[in-house]
Design a protein around this nucleic acid. Structure first.
Lengths: 119, 119
DNA sequence: CGGTATCCTCTACGATACTG
DNA sequence: CAGTATCGTAGAGGATACCG
């Protein structure tokens, strides 16, 4: 996210784009900004949660979406998938240290969003 | 973002979804999580910026995208569009107080993202 | 229970060309 | 300069059904 605005002797401005693609903010958003991604991370903050419980928590999201997002999060190293081989099988999802490191941002976002719900 | 996990006498857990749709985190993400939205807000943090300068700053984004995002941001009350009636016309975009209130989150996101660019 | 597979629709987005 | 209009494609995402 480096951009310089150069101003010459006559006051004319030139914008230099030195922004590496994709920018840090965009990269970060692609990690936690997907549909339901932030909510999933947030719901895993206290304890491991099972797949179907997560579905119930995220009432508006389809199972396919949640499955997809969980795989992304697993691939990005933010979520850990644990299989407990009972019958029927049980699978829990929990946050890795990396995943946990995103909680501050999400909490701040939640507070910000709620404080502006009056618009 | 209210979800309760009830545990009964036998230790059996029931998940109650009391999450109002859409949740605060999702609502917040829809405000600043669109493609390029965060970057646009971030680039407006110091001073009003003209349309074409913004395009140069966001090298990877098409003009159409930027136009679209700016309109969204204007509709959401985060960005102010100012027309200076010279010839040729000049248009600058700047942050409103509401838009400015999102900068903390974006800055935190940027730092977080950069500190994990080694994965 | 915890998923896949399939189908279908709708939109996001890029490319390009035109305009006051 | 700051857009709008039009077209085309790829992928997002819902609904439904099936599986180990």
């Amino acid at each position: 996210m480096k951009t310089e605005i150069k101003t010459d002797a006559k006051g004319k401005k030139t914008v230099l784009n030195t922004c590496t693609e994709p920018c840090a903010i965009e990269r970060g958003m692609r990690l936690i900004g997907g549909k339901w991604t932030g909510s999933i991370i947030y719901h895993l903050k206290d304890e491991p949660v099972r797949f179907n419980d997560l579905c119930r928590m995220l009432g508006g999201a389809s199972r396919k979406m949640i499955d997809q997002r969980l795989k992304e999060l697993e691939n990005n190293g933010m979520v850990l998938r644990s299989v407990i081989d009972t019958r029927p099988i049980a699978v829990t999802y929990s946050l890795t240290e990396f995943g946990r490191s995103a909680l501050d941002i999400l909490e701040q976002l939640r507070v910000w969003s709620e404080s502006h719900s009056d618009n």
